[in-house]
Design a binder for these strands. Structure first.
Lengths: 140, 140
DNA sequence: TACAATTATTTACCTGGGTAAATAAAAAAA
DNA sequence: TTTTTTTATTTACCCAGGTAAATAATTGTA
């Protein structure tokens, strides 16, 4: 029987470790993992309002405001006004579109490498377990 | 075959979710999860130098300096000088010792509840998978 | 239409992770 | 012994998560 303290401690530790490595990989491209998550999202779904972004990424609105502001400063995204004047629609810049594939490759490679210590079955188990940890208990 | 982007995205999301809930539970006691981690550590091992703490928790030294400073302000720990004048030995205050069991109960209950959606087998798998994600690949 | 409620975003302020560089004390070496 | 190197901690400054409250625009309603 595993001590739950140990389990949660290990969970936090490993996530910090992975995030740190992830950021190190991305630093070569001038990005951080949260910025990449937004880039990935915009490439996948096209221009989005900030609300759509934070709802998708499951973070709070102020977090996105801040990160998008930084990304805009570094010429990764631009914001234009939506049909609704409250909305700000975010889209990738030409620079971001141009560099996307290269960064994607680096990320993909890092992820594969990290996962390489797991069997295919363990990867499936991992995904399934993580889903069950969520608010919807894995049915959503 | 699972998309690794999805997997890592899910990992981050779930950890944020769990951390948030954890903090909410602890807020009733005036603590945050990182502070609890330190309290747990000190209760388990007794007074420790800051270096011993950050090495055990696997974070960087400045992180511990900051959190310990906050905990000292809130009367959870005190720092005294070690035999080596560079060292600062941290120990729990009377308040912390008095409240420890109560907080521990709350934490334990939350952790059990969170894990309750997993089978015993899945908990074991989860632990084992997390170990393999680390720098030592699970052998350490 | 005028007023109230909702929605999108922002601001201010917390915690907590990181790195780089500065101190101060101890240990090692010349 | 004096000097150099290492070690423990701190400071300054990032990024990223959170909450509470403020704005501004849109919807809903009396």
């Amino acid at each position: 029987m595993i001590d739950t303290h140990e389990l949660f401690h290990l969970l936090h530790q490993r996530v910090r470790f992975v995030t740190k490595e992830f950021n190190q990989q991305l630093s070569a491209h001038g990005l951080y993992h949260s910025q990449w998550a937004i880039m990935y999202c915009l490439e996948r779904f096209g221009p989005m309002t900030q609300t759509a972004i934070w709802k998708y990424l499951n973070v709070e609105a102020p977090t996105i405001t801040r990160t998008i502001t930084r990304m805009e400063k570094n010429d990764w995204v631009i914001r234009r006004q939506g049909g609704d004047k409250r909305e700000r629609v975010v889209e990738l810049t030409e620079k971001a579109k141009k560099k996307y594939e290269q960064v994607n490759q680096a990320v993909y490679q890092y992820e594969q490498e990290t996962i390489s210590r797991l069997t295919r079955e363990e990867v499936d188990q991992f995904y399934s377990i993580l889903q069950k940890l969520g608010p919807e208990g894995g049915e959503g």
